[in-house]
Amino acid sequence: MKLLKLLLLPFMGAVVAAAFLWPEPAKGFLGESSRIVFFHVPCAWTAALAFLVAAGYSVAWLVKRQPHFDEVAEAAVRLGLLFSVLTLVTGSLFAKIMWGSYWNWDPRESSYLLLVFLYSAYLFLRAAVDDPERRARIGSAYAVFAAVLMPFLVFVAPRVTASLHPQTVINPQGKILMDIPTRTVFFTALAAFTGLFFWMLEIQSRLARLDRERAKSARGGAV
């Protein structure tokens, strides 16, 4: 993890610089607006990854019943929410330039907003339960259930109605419609954001573990 931390700063710096300097802006988009793809899509990818990691650790908690798994799942959901909000913000900036308004009730915008609500509900649900064991059980069951239905919200519902959103990376043709410089920066940005997520997840999980140990020792001291 130390190596990842050391590599992340120059790696992210290089991605940001390349995103603005290397590829030509894509045709069919106003001004430099197409460059948002190097930040918007990696944020959306990282959010989806975070929610899948949360589901994976929730399954692990259901099987092993160890508090660490629940702590990582909760940390992953919090980070997933952060990246989802960043996805909404970057998408709104693009929408303002391209369509003249920050919010257009486009099916993709709306489904991403609902995704934020869906995982905010996970935090509400946890906050409403006092007993740590029951909180972990209910939270894990919800995280797995939500992960099963999440694809309907993110991938299926936006395709039921017409959308203004540009063609996604996962498109009906099954082709990545990008030139070589755009493709290189895009996939490097995906890797950099993924690394950033795992580094942040490690810090958050460590903090949660320290909190649990401190609470345990405080209880021991009180007795």
């Binding site: 995704l115 509400f124 409403a128 339960v129 006092d130 239905l149 309907f152």
Partner: peptide, 18 residues
């Protein structure tokens, strides 16, 4: 859980939209 009736709507609505 506490506040279950309100919580139910908060939890169910995003899952039922799809």
């Amino acid at each position: 859980a506490g506040q279950r009736n309100v919580l139910f709507l908060v939890v169910s609505f995003p899952l039922l939209v799809p």
